[in-house]
Design a protein around this nucleic acid. Structure first.
Lengths: 112, 112
DNA sequence: TCTCATACCTCGTTTGGCGAGGTATAGTCG
DNA sequence: CGACTATACCTCGCCAAACGAGGTATGAGA
């Protein structure tokens, strides 16, 4: 394994998507709304990012989906696979590491 | 103004570069080394990222450079312009906002 | 009827991170 | 002397990812 991973760059959408879906099954539109609310507007994900990301995650075997009709509208519900959970754990570690690194740079007043 | 800015994505290299150079003048190679040390290996910046980024920042008027010969080697020292300082302040705000958003997502155990 | 919210989708562009490569000098070890 | 490492700069080309803009369709309410 030892795949790509955010070296410096984020991959925030992937992280956030996996994390939201780790709790419970959700469908795309719901994810976008929830993200906005929970992050208190700090994060928003456009549909041009959201749907391609979900498809890619599913294609990689990190998500599983099922389709359900509700009030004549189609919802595609996603949930994490075991691989998705492992991936999430890994990405979370990387995120913490990276953001702590950035904080160290931002916080320091002198370097030598 | 009101330029693009990292919507979801990072722009970590730009932020970090500006922050390091806000303290004191540094040259490229030194930046790469310092970043690694100060971030305790959490962040590294390859030369294929570093130099193009520095040039782009200078072209945008956020950095100013001067060249100096030291022991027969050429060093290009960079420092922030006033615009660079303003940009740094802005990016720092965005970073905090974004990373707090991510933390809220990571930290929450239930959403409704 | 029109608009808004819901719910999905894709296409094309741009940006930017990154590896790999290239040049040159100074110092160290054998 | 020759090889190698560290210093110091640079560019090219690839690829992935974020994003805006556009498209389809339904249900509810004004």
């Amino acid at each position: 394994m030892s795949e790509r991973d955010p070296t410096l760059m984020s991959g925030v959408p992937e992280l956030v998507l996996l994390r939201l879906l780790a709790h419970r099954e959700m469908y795309g539109y719901e994810i976008a709304r929830t993200l906005k609310v929970v992050s208190q507007d700090a994060l928003t994900i456009g549909e041009g990012v959201l749907y391609p990301a979900l498809h890619a995650l599913e294609a990689r075997g990190l998500l599983r989906s099922r389709t359900q009709q509700v009030d004549g509208r189609t919802r595609v519900y996603y949930q994490l696979t075991p691989r998705g959970h492992r991936r999430l754990a890994r990405l979370t570690m990387n995120w913490r590491r990276m953001s702590e690194g950035v904080e160290r740079i931002l916080g320091a007043t002198t370097y030598e």
